[in-house]
Simulated scan of single mutants.
Amino acid sequence: MLDAGFHRVPKGHIAAVVTHLEMRARPAPRPEAKVSLALERVERPDPDWYRRLFRTVGADYLWFGRLEMTDADLAAILADPKVEVYAVRDGSEEAGLLELDFRTPTECELAYFGLAPGYVGGGSGRWLMNRAIRRAWRDGVDRVWVHTCSLDHPAALEFYLRSGFTPFAREIEIAEDPRLRGLLPENAAPQVPLLR
Rank of each mutant, 00 (worst) to 15 (best):
P167K: 02
E186A: 02
P154E: 11
D142E: 13
V146E: 06
Q191Y: 07
E158F: 05
Q191C: 02
Y160C: 08
L180S: 04
E176W: 07
P185N: 00
G182K: 10
T148F: 00
W137P: 04
R181K: 13
P190F: 01
R181Y: 05
L184E: 09
R162F: 09
R162C: 05
C149Y: 00
L183K: 06
E176H: 08
V146K: 02
W145R: 08
H147F: 05
F165A: 02
V141F: 06
S163H: 06
L157C: 08
V144D: 05
H147N: 10
A188R: 02
D152M: 03
S150P: 14
A188Q: 07
P190D: 05
D139K: 10
S163V: 12
A189I: 08
E158W: 07
I172H: 14
E158H: 12
D177F: 06
R138K: 15
G164H: 08
P154A: 01
E186I: 11
A189V: 06
A169W: 10
L184D: 12
C149E: 08
R162L: 09
L157M: 12
R162G: 09
S150R: 09
R143S: 06
Y160A: 10
T148V: 06
C149I: 12
W137Q: 03
A169L: 09
F159S: 10
C149A: 01
E158K: 11
W137G: 03
A169C: 00
L183V: 15
N187I: 01
L151S: 05
L184H: 02
R138A: 04
N187G: 03
P185F: 00
H147M: 00
L161C: 06
A175C: 14
T166L: 03
A169T: 10
S150M: 04
A175Y: 13
E176Y: 06
Y160Q: 08
L151Y: 09
A189T: 06
C149F: 05
E171L: 00
E186N: 00
A188Y: 06
F165P: 06
R143G: 04
R143Q: 09
F159A: 10
L183Y: 08
R170G: 09
L180M: 03
L157D: 11
A189C: 11
P185W: 00
P178G: 02
L183H: 08
F159H: 10
G182S: 08
A189M: 06
L157K: 15
D177W: 08
L157F: 14
V192T: 15
L161E: 13
F168Q: 08
T166Q: 06
R170A: 05
A189Y: 02
